[in-house]
């Protein structure tokens, strides 16, 4: 309940922060020429505030991420940016309507003023941000290259747009000036938190790799031990940001713990990672025992500890099964007698990640039902095949299945399908919990 209230309070605060500069500029600033000019500048202010706040949304500060979870916040970061871009587009249409030539938008030197030059640069940065984020795979941009571009383009966008706004304010009120400075400080503090404070605190808490083993489905499990510190406790289903190239390395990768959370804080931690890109495909398999790694976490609200119910249904696809593995093992290690159903989808029997763990657990614990679903099963396969559908789930769900809690993790198309299928089965939306990991 407290979390719901905190979540709502966060949303209201966000709405206030996103609209405050626009409202102050419009209501307390100098009178605009007409309603169109006022709407144009107001929309531009909303766009600028949204882009400045984007930095805060990705800081991983627990106070900010706590009520929502990192993946919901990242989705919000991505989609509210489209709202910001729409505001900027409307601003462009309105200033074009008022006589600004289109070449002033594309050529930073066309008008010979700082205001227009900065505005044009901000537009280029915004265009590049949208193109690289919406079409990263189409542009064949690696995640690592995209991340680097994203950070610099984001900073270029707010600096240029801030300059544009500053140069256009003929006589800003002290309140508006203070607001602009405040948002600038917010961006700097967010960057300082992520780029300086976080790496510095992680550098003092290294982890050492004790095992790196191959798993089914082109995945590997890294086993880490804390080195000279107390380790960490986590809730099943949570994840950490992993750095392998040093605490100050630019790239960090979000990876779920795949071991039981029912353990001492200084016991080994396990992460299961599928070979999907440059880092997971080449760097991770090459890590030798003794290597040092750095963790930022744990994060995430995708955990049964936040959503109690009379039983749990876990639906996992591919390597998406790893957070679910942690949940299932933790509940069983706690001698939880509630019914657990794990629907585990994969391409082939040989590719069922962590298969042996589930087979062994299902043998020992009668309250766990493990249902592998194979897209391309072997000829003699007598189990479930194809995709996870409503009809398939109906075969395994108990009669009062709408009161259970559902945890879904897998590739994006599967997640979309599961949200539809569970709604079709009458499961209320607040009992369906999802974690998405392939957002760009």
């Amino acid at each position: 309940m407290v979390l719901v209230l905190r979540g709502l309070a966060g949303l209201i605060l966000y709405a206030l922060l996103a609209t405050a500069p626009a409202l102050v500029a419009l209501l307390a600033g100098p009178a605009p020429a007409d309603a169109l000019a006022a709407a144009s500048s107001g929309l531009a202010w909303v766009g600028l505030a949204i882009f400045a706040l984007e930095f805060l949304l990705v800081t991983r500060i627990h106070m900010v991420t706590g009520p929502y979870g990192q993946d919901a916040l990242l989705q919000f970061h991505r989609e509210i940016a489209l709202v910001g871009a729409a505001c900027v587009a409307a601003h462009l249409v309105l200033v074009g309507w008022r006589g600004v030539p289109p070449r002033a938008f594309v050529d930073p030197f066309a008008m010979g003023t700082v205001a227009f030059g900065a505005g044009s640069l901000a537009l280029w940065a915004l265009g590049a941000l949208l193109a690289t984020s919406l079409a990263r795979r189409l542009l064949r941009l690696s995640y690592e290259a995209w991340l680097l571009l994203h950070r610099w383009l984001g900073l270029a966008l707010v600096v240029a747009a801030g300059l544009h706004a500053h140069a256009l304010m003929a006589s800003p009120t002290p309140l508006l000036k203070a607001l602009v400075l405040g948002y600038g400080a917010l961006v700097l503090l967010s960057l300082g938190w992520v780029r300086v404070w976080k790496p510095w605190s992680q550098a003092r808490r290294p982890w050492v790799l004790v095992d790196n083993r191959a798993e089914r489905g082109r995945a590997r499990t890294l086993v880490l031990r804390p080195l000279g510190h107390a380790g960490l406790a986590f809730a099943p289903g949570q994840f950490c940001w992993l750095r392998t190239a040093g605490p100050w390395a630019r790239e960090a990768h979000p990876v779920s713990m795949s071991c039981s959370a029912e353990r001492a804080a200084d016991a080994p931690l396990e992460f299961t990672i599928k070979a999907l890109g440059d880092w997971s495909g080449t760097r991770v398999p090459g890590l030798a025992p003794g290597a040092h790694l750095w963790l930022d976490g744990p994060y995430g609200v995708f955990t049964p500890e936040r959503h109690e119910g009379p039983g749990f249904v876990f639906i996992g696809g591919g390597v998406g099964v790893t957070p679910l593995a942690s949940m299932v093992q933790t509940l069983l290690d706690r001698d939880d007698a509630r019914p657990l159903l794990l629907v585990h989808a994969a391409n082939a029997w040989e590719g069922l990640c962590l298969r042996e763990r589930f087979e062994e657990r299902a043998r020992r614990h009668p309250n766990l039902r493990w249902v592998p679903v194979l897209e391309s099963p072997p000829a003699d396969w007598g189990g479930e095949r194809g995709y996870v559908t409503a009809a398939l789930l109906r075969r395994y769900l108990p009669p009062r299945h709408t009161s259970l809690q559902y945890f879904v993790c897998g590739p994006a198309p599967m997640m979309d399908a599961m949200e539809r299928v569970l709604a079709e089965l009458g499961v209320p939306a607040d009992r369906v919990h999802t974690e998405r990991y392939d957002m760009v």
């Binding site: 709405a15 996103a18 609209t19 209501l27 709407a39 909303v46 949204i50 489209l82 709202v83 949200e419």
Partner: peptide
């Protein structure tokens, strides 16, 4: 939070921002 819920929140917030700004612009110019 599910994907759809986040999308709804974004749509509601976006509509709210635009409505607020247009209202303020209209008030200011009136």
């Amino acid at each position: 939070m599910t994907h759809r819920l986040v999308r709804r929140v974004v749509l509601v917030l976006g509509a709210l921002f635009v409505a607020l700004v247009l209202l303020a612009a209209w008030l200011r110019a009136a």
